[in-house]
């Protein structure tokens, strides 16, 4: 494979496939792509726990499944506790090498599942919790969630009254639990994402991975731009890619060559179309302030 003039060497991407074609995600869904990449990083043996979210249906309606690993469908609020239970069961049966992975949306993590997640993290159970964050309740029809960013349109925050509160900072909440590993990742940077999943698998204790996952339907972007829009989120520092070990070592894993204005990210999406230039400026300030808080903690590498 020839990619020597390219920024990334795609030869590094594992060839294993644990997700088959024929899934029922919408065209251009970043969540289905993220799952494929995550499993490339995690490998087998892995067990997934999926609460109510888009991913309940993406692998296929019963009796179909696109996933080549066992999946346990949990109730909306119980991802954390189900993970703990399944891990305990495997350990009891002498199968401690099984990686138990929760895969929940932003609604199931930021809002409905936060109690169970917090309890799992507090017990530091040996599980991986992945939140694929598409920034609203997309499966039920684009309702506002705690993960919805400020200013965004959803069906419950219409254009004349868009969401006025900023996005809940789930990363800080999880860092406050002092878990051994936390990372943000996105499928627009597959090499970075796979490396983080590999690393997560090698660590004991509660690991939390926050994925930004574009939803062309809910974000009002053309399907072909879902990777592009996630890339712009990283390049504009709206969704910086970093990892945190034991709430102590902070490391930015993808440093943009040039930070772009948030306007480019916002203006690509229909859900932000109503934002005035004034609002975009405010948004820029909010993003800059948050990144500045993070940046101070990033370990200086190189």
């Amino acid at each position: 494979m020839y990619s020597l003039n390219q920024r990334f060497n795609n030869q590094d991407i594992p060839e294993d496939e644990f997700m088959a074609s024929g899934n029922s995600a919408c065209a251009g869904c970043a969540a289905s792509l993220s799952m494929g990449l995550a499993l490339k990083g995690l490998g087998k043996p892995t067990v997934l726990v999926i609460p109510a979210c888009c991913f309940t249906i993406i692998p296929g309606a019963w009796p179909l499944t696109a996933l080549d690993v066992p999946v346990f469908q949990a109730a909306f609020e119980t991802t954390g506790s189900t993970l703990s239970g399944i891990k305990a069961a495997y350990r009891k049966r002498g199968m401690d090498d099984v990686c138990v992975v929760g895969w929940a949306g932003d609604g199931g993590t930021f809002d409905i599942g936060i109690q169970a997640l917090s309890a799992t993290a507090e017990r530091n159970d040996d599980v991986v919790y992945v939140c694929y964050d598409n920034e609203a309740y997309m499966n039920t029809g684009i309702q506002r969630s705690g993960g919805t960013p400020m200013g965004a349109w959803t069906t419950t925050t219409p254009v004349k009254d868009p969401k006025s509160e900023p996005k809940k900072d789930i990363d800080e909440i999880m860092i406050a639990h002092r878990i051994p590993y936390l990372a943000t990742a996105t499928a627009a940077y597959p090499h970075d994402m796979i490396a983080k999943f590999k690393k997560a698998r090698s660590i004991k204790g509660t690991r939390f991975i926050h994925l930004l996952s574009a939803c062309p339907t809910g974000w009002r972007v053309p399907e072909n731009l879902s990777i592009e829009v996630m890339r712009l989120a990283v390049l504009s520092n709206i969704f910086p890619l970093f990892e945190v070990e034991n709430a102590e070592i902070f490391r930015q894993t993808v440093i943009p060559d040039e930070v772009i204005p948030v306007e480019r990210y916002l203006r690509l999406q229909g859900r932000f179309r109503h934002l005035t230039d004034e609002a975009v400026k405010e948004y820029q300030k909010m993003v800059d302030d948050r990144f500045e808080r993070l940046r101070k903690r990033f370990e200086i590498t190189e």
Binding site: A20, S21, G22, A27, P59, G60, W62, P63, T65
Partner: peptide, 16 residues
Amino acid sequence: SVSTTSSLVNKTGTWK
């Protein structure tokens, strides 16, 4: 209920 069939029977190519 346990899924036992691969999603490969679901020819999603018809959507495009």
